[in-house]
């Protein structure tokens, strides 16, 4: 009986959560230029309860907008770890998927999900606002069905992520 109540409680929570997602307004790469049109009146992501926010502690989504170099990686990992559960990561643009046009760069990592848990990738260089809105709707579905569990995976596989982070960042903490 208790289990059922807990499950029902979780379901209600998840469906409430998906209606109020706040983005950490932190831009890493050039793809971030597609976010302002998405936020403002033309595409208006506020319709879905998604708004940008300035501090990690109050945000739910970390959007990694494009290429991540070593210097940025250190900062986004810190920001990500400061965010409170539940938190979701969206990899945005082909650079975060496989390095994109920076595949041969001396400072850009090529596979974001080895360093932090990514719930969802948007392909494209850069993705259009329609694709971003679509990804948000998809993320809501994932949250609703309990599949957006990146923050749990991060805790469970912390050693794996930490090992990969150490490999490129050196000993940093």
């Amino acid at each position: 009986m208790d289990k059922e109540i807990e499950q029902g409680y979780n379901e209600i929570l998840e469906s409430l959560r998906k209606r109020s997602l706040w983005i950490l307004h932190y831009c890493t790469g050039c793809g971030a230029i597609e976010l302002p049109p998405t936020m403002t009146s033309r595409y208006d992501m506020g319709r879905f309860g998604i708004v940008p926010f300035v501090t990690p502690r109050q945000s739910d989504i970390l959007i990694v907008t494009g290429y991540v170099n070593i210097k940025t990686l250190r900062r986004i990992i810190t920001s990500y770890e400061q965010m409170l559960d539940p938190k979701y990561v969206i990899g945005f643009g082909s650079c975060s998927i496989n390095g994109g046009i920076y595949w041969d760069s001396h400072s850009v990592i090529k596979k974001l999900d080895s360093y932090m848990p990514v719930d969802l990738y948007i392909a494209g260089c850069m993705p259009r606002p329609e694709a971003i809105i679509h990804s948000f709707k998809h993320l809501m579905e994932l949250i609703d069905t309990g599949k957006a569990d990146g923050y749990r995976r991060y805790k469970e596989n912390y050693d794996f992520y930490r090992k990969n982070q150490r490999k490129v960042l050196g000993k940093w903490r």
Partner: peptide, 13 residues
């Protein structure tokens, strides 16, 4: 050699 450095240091997909 940038390509060599990138292949050695950063995991590719």
């Amino acid at each position: 050699d940038s390509i060599k450095y990138a292949t050695e240091h950063y995991e590719a997909r």
